[in-house]
Design a protein around this nucleic acid. Structure first.
Lengths: 338, 338
DNA sequence: TTTCTTTATGCAATCGATTGCATAAAGAAA
DNA sequence: TTTCTTTATGCAATCGATTGCATAAAGAAA
């Protein structure tokens, strides 16, 4: 109990100076073995702990990175953080997490606060807003490295790491088309966010290439959660606007839609084949199990840290890193091709 | 770009001292409005950022807490951290996360490292090991507050917050018994971890009270993941040792078991009723949906921080905090009572 | 013995910000 | 004019650890 002890306490007890103690504790070659032994002995006796803050102040860094994400309770994010944390701890870095709860104000506050010599670098997935990058530019100006992942600002000036959402979405649509489906509907997200924009763009591109005209009522905007998906499906049923397939920008709404369709006797995949996005943890367990696009979130997290580390060490890093994705075909779209 | 600016740079530029600048920036009442205005102007001009490390060193704290958990990619933990992070950010605290990957060595390393003036307090869920608390005692000795949650050391000397696993498990078993089931099997975890121990104890207690003798082959030890659950079910089928119900200490093995049973034509819940534990995110989406015990993980995280904060502020905190649990009855055990 | 080299330790400045105390300047009271 | 009070600012120590440079002591070489 009592007060924490410092190197001065050890020095005083041994009648030597703090510099010697400091060097002894760090096993500096100039210090005699005899002194090292005594210093370590007294350090243990006084329950000495190195004061990391003081070291950080002297060293000018914190060996801590900040992770700023919209929310933690999505499999994608918790899994990415898992990867970040693993890579970081291996490199001797700590990870501070800030959730923005999809609120730009909170994002700005978090970035501002962590940039006050709290972290050496950032890994960020931006909030649902596209226009205001001033707080990120400030980081660049101060020379604080930043790596964006998944949701990145739509501007070339930042380093970003993601999968190729456009191609992955095209692939998903092509997969559905290869099963003979043409009335392929789409659940879209807010187009001001890079990833939703890209996924919808991929859908449109594939449809165009297939020569299928997207009729009005095929694309459902801002359909990102379970309830929205359920309502969308109910609306389709009510208006007799039944798809042969759905490509959804997220797994969650599909869950709601599948439930609504099954309740009305539609068979999946026979009547309606579906592919989601995100490989959420529940997708293997739905009935039928859900086809989906996997983003290798854990791997993305790991690589985000690796690139940030390089950037913090002063090495140049490519502006844009694209990781491989994977279309996981499960029962919800498992049909003989034609 | 260039070097970061400090209060000395501002002071020099204005021909005043750093003390005045420091006070002006913090809006101290002794400083004239004129000087404050000028200081803030120059601060903006030089892109000045407060150096948190220096402040921390002076203040003797970091306004950061450490969260040490076995793994991040479990709904329970990511959700609890969600709660911790929310409460912490409200109180102006940062959260550093360390995963121990169920390895005591890593746990010790994390605690040791963070205790070197990196964090002001800890929220910990311990690793699968029960005997070695030296690293936690060291924290107590140094006067660093710690709150354990969910998995706590089995010793009265620490502050812990959890649900009443014993009662929750009893309740789950009683619920199955109320449906007329007597051959109630149990998937157990490693008994050296408090929570698994308590859950198995709850199962045994309920069975005893019901007057049902637990025959050999009813309890499956160390059955905590999907594969183990699947293998357990296959073994039951192979040995014609079929239960009427299963109470599992975790949702994951039940998922495997349900799948194995369904494959062999057993109906759930008609033939075998099951209740899991943890309210994992997939439980509403299995078919049939899975009954389970909810631990209010988000709330537990929030409260863990609240108690830690009190403890850090020097207020006394009760040694043991028990939160309410909830038995969520879904289709997998939804049967008329008798 | 004198000079040089090696070894081990200490001196003092430094990283930025904070803060108790001192004090100059200005104004008020006598 | 002198003394007292108020206002605004500066001085200097401090939080712990690090590190370039200086130097004393011991041993080696001449």
């Amino acid at each position: 109990m009592g007060k924490k002890s410092s190197i001065y306490d050890i020095a005083q007890k041994l009648g030597i100076t703090a510099s010697t103690v400091s060097r002894a504790l760090r096993d500096h070659s100039n210090i005699s073995d005899e002194v090292k032994r005594k210093v370590n002995e007294v350090a243990k006796e006084l329950n000495y702990k190195r004061n990391t803050i003081a070291v950080n102040l002297k060293q000018g860094n914190t060996r801590t990175i900040g992770v700023v994400i919209p929310q933690l309770n999505r499999h994608f994010f918790s899994s990415a953080i898992n990867g970040i944390e693993e890579a970081a701890s291996e490199a001797g870095y700590n990870v501070i997490i800030c959730q923005t709860r999809n609120d730009v104000t909170q994002e700005k506050k978090a970035v501002q606060m962590l940039s006050e010599s709290v972290v050496d670098g950032f890994i960020i997935s931006v909030v649902t807003d596209v226009s205001d990058y001033a707080h990120f530019r400030t980081l660049q100006d101060q020379g604080i490295p930043v790596v964006f992942f998944d949701r990145y600002p739509m501007s070339d000036e930042f380093v970003r790491i993601s999968i190729d959402d456009f191609s992955a979405s095209r692939e998903a649509v092509m997969h559905l088309a290869s099963k003979g489906r043409t009335r392929i509907f789409h659940f879209a997200g807010d187009a001001s966010v890079s990833i939703w924009h890209e996924r919808t763009r991929g859908y449109c591109s594939a449809m165009q290439e297939l020569g299928i005209e997207i009729a009005p009522g095929w694309i459902f905007k801002n359909t990102l959660n379970l309830e929205a998906g359920m309502r969308a499906a109910e609306m389709m049923i009510a208006t007799h606007n039944i798809p042969e397939a759905i490509f959804s920008s997220s797994d969650h709404p599909l869950l709601g839609a599948m439930s609504a369709f099954k309740k009305q006797g539609f068979r999946i995949p026979e009547d309606i084949a579906v592919v989601g996005y995100g490989n959420e943890i529940f997708t293997p367990f739905t009935e039928p199990s859900m086809s989906t696009v996997d983003q290798h979130s854990y791997e993305m997290g790991k690589q985000a840290f690796t690139h940030l580390l390089r950037s913090m060490e002063g090495t140049d890093v490519p502006r844009q890193i694209v990781l491989p994705h994977e279309l996981i075909v499960r029962e919800s779209s498992f049909l003989p091709g034609c």
